[in-house]
């Protein structure tokens, strides 16, 4: 259990990996090639980052024919939240989050 949580924190502690997650939040089911397109990283580097993200269960893959499609899986992050965020705070945090999102609306990538 602890070991898995370490993997999640380690996987998130890298800006390239966070960018890959950002990309998968916006566009679902991308292949390795599609993920490489927009990043100034080698295919090998992307593959390595994805392997770490997959091991942390932050990225899930599904095989479709010969292709492997990548999806963002936010469940481990939700599990971490559940550990520290008190249930009665959730409503207020959601309100803050919505406010933040509304303020940042213009800077967000189009869905």
């Amino acid at each position: 259990m602890v070991a898995h949580e370490d993997k999640v924190f380690k996987a998130l502690a890298d800006s390239s990996r966070r960018r890959l997650l950002d990309r998968l939040r916006i566009k679902k089911g991308l292949t390795l090639s599609e993920l490489c397109e927009r990043h100034d990283m080698s295919r090998q580097a992307v593959t390595k980052h994805l392997a770490l993200l997959e091991a942390a269960n932050l990225v899930v893959t599904i095989k479709r024919g010969r292709e492997k499609l990548h999806y963002l899986n936010p469940v481990p992050i939700s599990e971490i939240c559940a550990r520290w965020i008190d249930r009665f705070e959730a409503g207020r945090l959601q309100a803050l989050d919505n406010l933040k999102q509304a303020l940042e609306e213009n800077e967000r990538d189009p869905h």
Partner: peptide, 28 residues
């Protein structure tokens, strides 16, 4: 994500700690 983390917590610990949080989140 909330439902699944609650489900995991319920099956592993016998307690679904944040069902209230879940509801608050789902009703946007």
């Amino acid at each position: 994500p909330l439902v699944l983390s609650c489900l995991k917590s319920l099956l592993e610990t016998g307690k679904a700690l944040n069902v209230r949080a879940l509801k608050d989140h789902v009703r946007t």
